[in-house]
Amino acid sequence: MRRLGLRRLGQYVLVFGVAVTLNFLLPRIMPGNPLALIAGVDVGLMTPDERAELIEQVGLNRPLIVQYFEYWKSILTGDFGFSYRSSRPISEIIAERLPWTLLITGAALVVSAVVGIIVGAFSAWRRGKKSDLTLLTGMISLESLPSFWLGMLLISIFSVQLGWLPSFGAVTPASDLTGWAQVGDVVEHAVLPTVTLTVLSIPGVYLTMRYAMLEVLGEDFIRTARAKGASERRVLFGHVARNAMAPVVTFLAIRFAFSFGGAVIIETVFSYPGLGRLIFEAVSGRDYPVMQAAFLVITIAVLVANLFADIIYPILDPRSQEE
């Protein structure tokens, strides 16, 4: 198991290496001046001397292989260069933005997982009955909602009409809150984006769980459980649910990585200062170095989510340990 686990870990390292390599190559093989993409400057406005100095500074005049190793060195030391727009180190900007995204996507993931699994299990239990069909129809309609529309709807209800919750930002600016008041302020700001993300990911969890449960219900060992006298509820929660969890965990891992990117729209709608909003700002300001760093962070998030699923999977299904 441990040996095979190392092999699996090696695969992750390999994927990470490929991602970093692509990130290194892309600005260098894309049309246009790589200087603009790497240093994040408007090349047209510079004098030839300034340009030469900058090329020397970012190392574009050195052999590609040297640049490649330099790039690796900077990635591993957390040095992503400077933002073209704000002239601050990108690592600093990301360190500032990442926690906010983690807060809302993480909270949304946990809540949607719990709700989706429970409601999905309930639906499978009542399969074919009215409550199941109502839930199924409701979830499918929910899944087809556009995220920005749902966000704006929530803002117009809870911020504009009812005035209960703030509609933008992560904290109240210049409020100097401390202790619990600060925590409350953060929570208040996180509620609407989190609810939006949650509502959007519940249907997927629900559908996966319901389908997996129905699949497992047809298995021979479910008949065995009934034959030994287990009640319907015991069959469902003692034998079906555990087996149905494995595909749900896979789905959640994919969903987590996806919501990192999906947060671009939500964070923009709520002016939430997370990674998604950063990407939006970088795209609109043509801040290439920031975009690249953000993409790398998303790649890492995808890898971590998958690694997490890989670790949980054998616990849920002991058979997969042998593979």
Partner: peptide, 28 residues
């Protein structure tokens, strides 16, 4: 009723099925 049947199944009547590969729950 379902409940009354559950008391007899596995109690006074035991049953063994055809395919032992799929008749046991893989996660327990």
């Amino acid at each position: 009723s379902k409940r009354e049947f559950s008391a007899i199944r596995g109690g006074d009547i035991g049953m063994v099925f055809q395919d032992p590969m799929s008749s046991l729950n893989p996660v327990h």
